[in-house]
Structure formats: structure tokens, C-alpha cells
Design a protein around this nucleic acid. Structure first.
Length: 311
DNA sequence: ATGGACCCTTGAT
DNA sequence: ATCAAGGGTCCA
């Protein structure tokens, strides 16, 4: 079937300007793994049950969607935080007193946290361990093609947990998931019978939510923080990955700290929008634009394990 | 509480 | 061809 085709490009009513580079960083900077740059500066992606195209020019974001889906625009507005709920949080970050953060935020001004579907964040970050962004994107694309419902124009939504529970681990491994196949299947078996799992979990306080997430197979502290941040809009969460470890070690003098201590540092130092600070630091570090990271190779010093936890 | 193994892909020697 | 490492987690 020919499919409904794309609507014409129209401006999206964002409360803030967004540069092309900040848009690219939001869509392809490790928050979501569902967007592809189909032409220079133009992105095609699937979020929830919607397909959209996005581009930015002169600070304005324009969008196009599948012609039968009138819900795409409101979904996009939510996804991109059009109302600007993160503006006040961003301004409240300690950039005035923290030159490292200030420099990081200057790399992609306007960069914000996407408001993703909880299941989408959970599935994608289950796949993320020991993988690069490009590889994660191909894994979730394979899962969608293999097990997800078609949306039109050749795109498919991510499979539901019930969809995934019907798949054998062998079939999941065929999507290049490796040992993550057992994680995905394990979570699918746990959640398949409660399609509205996220509604209940979203009412939990963040510490309880993190604990609940970590009870799922394959979800440790880092993935739990990512799911809470990107899937449940818990902006205070501070995922600590290898990039953040390096950034905090080199730019904040925290060499030798373990991830748990760094997470504590991040939440205390950056406050209620620590996750937003994390995303700026992550992006700046990957761009080689953090002090101490540009001087030859992104290689972390061997973590020393002398640092003791205290409480 | 620290050390490895884990599946698989990619990029660097 | 081999090696190392990748937005970690699990189990000794």
C-alpha cells in the first residue's frame, strides 16, 4: 500500500528557540535511539505510536507527520517540552558559579531532556549496556521491525512487552542483542501482563521508582537512572556512564571516585535538574569540549578503588 | 564489596 | 587477524 504520505512542513510552537545542533543532540545524543538523519539537518523518527520528521532553522523547529495521524503534533509538543517546563530548571542550575557547567551548556544552548514513553526508554536502555549509540539504534530498529506494529510509511513502533514476551530468546538474539536478549525477555515476562505498569510506577517517589526499576533484570543503577530521567521525566536523576565518569574525573577533579559516589555528587551539586546538567556534560564531553578531555584521547584513568563510601 | 564474564560489533593496530 | 572497548549488569 502506498501509505498516507507526509504532511507539509509546519512550524512547531516551542516556547524556546532550538538550534539545529541542539535539535540533533536531543534526537541523536544518547537520549533516544529512534531518530535517523535522512537528509542533512532533517530527522525522521518514531516516538510512541507516532512518526515524524523534524528540522530546525533560524531557531524554529519545523515538523511533518503522517497524513492520517492528527495526534502527532500534540505528541510532539509534549515530547519536546514545548511548554518550556525545563526552562526554569535550566536557569536554576549552578552555571553562574560553575564554569565547567557553563562551558558545557554553551555547547548546545537550549538542549533539553526528551519526554519519552516509559516503555520506550526502558527497552532502549536495556539494550544500551556496553554498546555505542549507533549499535543501540540498530538493535531497537531490528526489534521494531521484527516484533513491533507497523505505523505506515515503512515505520514500525517499538514492540510492546506482550509482543516481546511471545518472542524466544533466540529470536531476540537474532536482533544482535547478545546477552541483553535475556534482559529483554525477562522484563517482557514481568511486564507483559500489566500493560499499564508505568501509570502506577509514575506515582512513586523517585527513590522508590528507581528501586522498582532496579528490580527488573538487566536494570542496574545507570539504566534505572536513564529510564527515570528520560521515561518518567525525573529531572533530578543523574545517570553516571563512562563519559560522565571521565568528565567528572577530569573537569571536576573526581578521579578515583566510583560511580555511586559520582551520582551522589551530581545530585547534590547540580540539584533538581541534575539530569539536565548531566546531558549537557555528556554532550560536551562527547564533543571534546570539556576542560581536561580534549588533551588527547578519551581514556579514563584507571579508577582506584581506595575511595570509601560514607553515609 | 571488588573482579570478571558476559554477546556482539566496530575501529584501531 | 587480533585487540580493545563500547551511555553496564550480574554473580562469585
Amino acid at each position: 500500500m502506498a501509505g498516507p504520505g507526509w504532511t507539509s512542513w509546519r512550524p512547531l510552537a516551542l516556547a524556546r528557540g532550538l538550534s539545529s545542533s541542539a535539535l540533533a543532540e536531543q534526537l541523536d545524543g544518547g537520549q533516544s535511539f529512534r531518530w535517523v538523519e535522512h537528509a542533512p539537518g532533517e530527522w525522521t523518527g518514531v516516538f510512541g505510536r507516532h512518526v515524524a520528521r523534524l528540522r530546525a532553522s533560524g531557531g524554529t523547529v519545523e515538523w511533518s507527520g503522517l497524513a492520517g495521524d492528527v495526534a502527532t503534533e500534540p505528541a510532539l509538543l509534549n515530547y519536546l517540552d514545548a511548554a518550556g517546563e525545563q526552562e526554569r530548571l535550566a536557569d536554576g542550575l549552578p552555571w553562574r558559579s560553575d564554569p565547567v557547567l557553563r562551558a558545557a551548556m554553551a555547547v548546545h544552548p537550549g538542549l533539553r531532556i526528551l519526554r519519552q514513553d516509559p516503555s520506550e526508554a526502558l527497552l532502549c536502555f536495556l539494550c544500551s549496556s556496553n554498546k555505542r549509540i549507533q549499535q543501540i539504534r540498530s538493535m531497537v530498529a531490528a526489534l521494531s521491525r521484527g516484533f513491533g506494529p507497523p505505523l505506515g510509511a515503512g515505520h514500525t513502533a517499538l514492540p510492546s512487552w506482550a509482543d516481546l514476551a511471545r518472542a524466544q530468546e533466540k529470536e531476540l538474539r537474532a536482533c544482535a542483542l547478545g546477552y541483553r536478549a535475556a534482559y529483554v525477555r525477562g522484563v517482557a515476562l514481568r511486564l507483559a501482563s500489566s500493560p499499564d505498569w508505568a501509570d502506577g510506577w509514575s506515582r512513586l517517589e523517585t527513590p522508590a521508582l528507581l528501586e522498582r526499576l532496579r528490580s527488573l533484570p538487566g536494570v542496574g543503577p545507570k539504566v534505572a537512572a536513564c529510564v527515570a530521567l528520560f521515561g518518567f521525566a525525573r529531572l533530578e536523576c543523574f545517570p553516571v556512564d563512562t563519559w560522565i565518569v571521565q568528565a567528572l574525573a577530569s573537569a571536576y577533579g573526581l578521579g578515583g571516585w566510583d560511580a555511586a559516589r559520582m551520582e551522589m555528587f551530581g545530585r547534590v551539586h547540580f540539584g533538581p535538574a541534575a539530569g539536565l546538567a548531566q546531558q549537557h556534560l555528556f554532550a560536551a564531553a562527547r564533543a571534546g569540549r570539556l576542560p581536561g578531555l580534549s588533551d588527547g584521547g578519551a581514556r579514563a584513568p584507571r579508577p582506584r578503588s581506595r575511595a570509601r563510601r560514607r553515609r
